[in-house]
Design a protein around this nucleic acid. Structure first.
Length: 478
DNA sequence: ATGTTC
């Protein structure tokens, strides 16, 4: 059980006052039920949040969102900003292994009624055109030595320049589809080898491509600005930087531990290994991380092109253009200005959620706020929220990123074996196409918390505003 | 998350 004082500051907001080696307070957001679960889990995720608050140069407060759970060093569902002028650090554990993992939402011109008669055909076409599973490859796009520097610095734009997508897509991607500061030379040969044939693939685990429909609109005005209407068919893509990003993280871990020692950084947990932002080790990681991030942006762009191809084959060319509503990342470290300070914001399993009027929100959405895409599980629903002024004031412009697991993978498999998960979903009108049965079993709806509870806490705390709820029709998984 | 333990 966690040995710290927790102060409840509101229905959805809790504070862990600075104590011991903490340099700042920690804040977490939770519904009463989620707060009980966090305690019941022995406070492990909250202890990780406390550990983060001890790192040099952290800007107050260390933040956790309602989908917080235990992760590598830093909790998943956490936000930590560091001030370079106060010895602030960068930590690979604060970004996560799947660098720039994120979600992209596409909007069709079709309705659920248009889709229903061709649902099986569309599921088959998507599964054929979008490789999924551990080690999945798209060999026809194998990246050669001459392409790497361009791909890793230009991100989604690289794909668009090769005819994979529309130039108009880029405006609706966070950071317009490329993090600045990428240094391709910092990415190891091994990382390039792993990623070389994986561009345009989903991967495994909780990654997916879903076809959905707009089941409910909470805010008609915001929905109209985002281009959403009831019954509309949408496509949600959740994937990251595959083996390339994983290897970049792996490569950095040992080096960062040595760097922490060299710079005299005391670590309550080795997995918090960090180096000063301005140090050679910190700069090397940031250059490689941005390159991996750009691979992830390109990955979602290429998958978009193939999803469009699948729709064209099933519904006819030009029948539905699949506009990019938004593409966001939930695992990275970015330079941003908050409270008049330039800070390096680590988001690990947390979504950037800039509020109305922020210049980094695409102009057509700026009056409403940034779209915040929150995937749930494959049997229930996902949410579209809008960023708020509250998030800007309290969480460095951040919100939640998903439901969070409630069963371990092995527990989920046991539950799934009892009732045929694919058949159960089919009875609810949800078609599943998966590379392996095991992944589906690990990802059954029962394995996840109800994302509605997470979203309730986020909205109740003023960190996001519900715009629409999306219900799955087709799920493509590893 | 991950060529699911180089």
């Amino acid at each position: 059980m966690i040995e710290v004082r927790i102060e409840r500051e509101g229905r959805y907001r809790y504070r862990i006052p600075r104590h011991g080696a903490m340099r700042v307070d920690a804040i977490f957001y939770a519904s009463p039920a989620i707060a009980r679960d966090l305690e019941a889990e022995g406070g492990q995720a909250l202890q990780q949040l406390v550990n983060v608050a001890t790192l040099p140069g952290i800007a107050a407060p260390a933040v956790a969102l309602p989908d917080i759970h235990w992760g590598y060093g830093f909790p998943i569902g956490g936000v930590a900003a560091f001030d370079p002028r106060k010895g602030g650090v960068v930590s690979p554990g604060g970004v996560g292994f799947d660098i720039n993992c994120g979600v992209r939402l596409l909007c069709s011109d079709l309705t659920r009624d248009d889709l229903e008669p061709r649902k099986e055909a569309l599921a088959d076409a998507l599964f054929r055109l979008v490789p999924a599973g551990v080690g999945s490859e798209r060999r026809e796009l194998r990246i050669g030595a001459a392409d790497w520097p361009h791909l890793l610095t230009r991100g989604a734009r690289w794909a668009v320049e090769r005819g994979l997508g529309d130039p108009d897509d880029l405006e609706f991607i966070e950071s317009t589809g490329a993090l600045p500061g990428a240094e391709p030379d910092r990415v190891s040969a091994r990382a390039l080898e792993r990623g070389g044939s994986q561009l345009g693939t989903l991967g495994s685990g909780n990654h997916f491509l879903e076809v959905q429909y707009v089941e409910h609109v909470y805010d008609p005005e915001a929905a109209e600005v985002f281009g959403l209407f009831p019954g509309q068919v949408t496509v949600l893509i959740h994937t990251g930087s595959r083996g390339l990003g994983h290897q970049v993280c792996q490569d950095s871990v040992d080096r960062m531990l040595a760097a922490a020692r060299r710079h005299g950084i005391e670590l309550p947990d080795r997995q918090l290994a960090a180096a000063p932002i301005e140090s050679p080790e910190g700069q090397a990681y940031l250059g490689a991380m941005a390159a991996a991030a750009n691979f992830a942006f390109a990955n979602r762009q290429v998958i978009t092109a193939y999803a469009r191809e699948a729709f064209a084959r099933v519904f006819g060319p030009g029948s539905s253009r699949l506009r990019v509503l938004y593409d966001l990342a939930h695992n990275n470290a970015k330079w941003e200005e908050h409270g008049g300070r330039r800070v390096l914001v680590h988001r690990k399993g947390a979504t950037r959620a800039f509020g109305p009027g922020h210049p980094d929100v695409p102009a057509p959405y700026r009056a409403v706020g940034q779209p915040v895409l929150v995937p749930g599980d494959m049997g229930r629903y996902s949410y579209v929220l809008a960023g708020t002024a509250g998030a800007m004031a309290e969480t460095f412009g951040s919100s939640c990123h998903g439901a969070g697991r409630r069963l371990s993978r092995s527990q989920a498999k046991k539950v799934a074996r009892k009732n045929d998960a694919v058949a159960a979903l089919k009875r609810q009108g949800i078609l599943v196409r998966a590379a392996t049965r095991a992944t589906v079993d690990e990802e059954i709806p029962e394995a996840y918390k109800d994302v509605a509870d997470v979203v309730e806490a986020v909205e109740g705390a003023g960190l996001g505003r519900r715009v629409a709820r999306l219900r799955p029709l087709i799920v493509v998984k590893g």
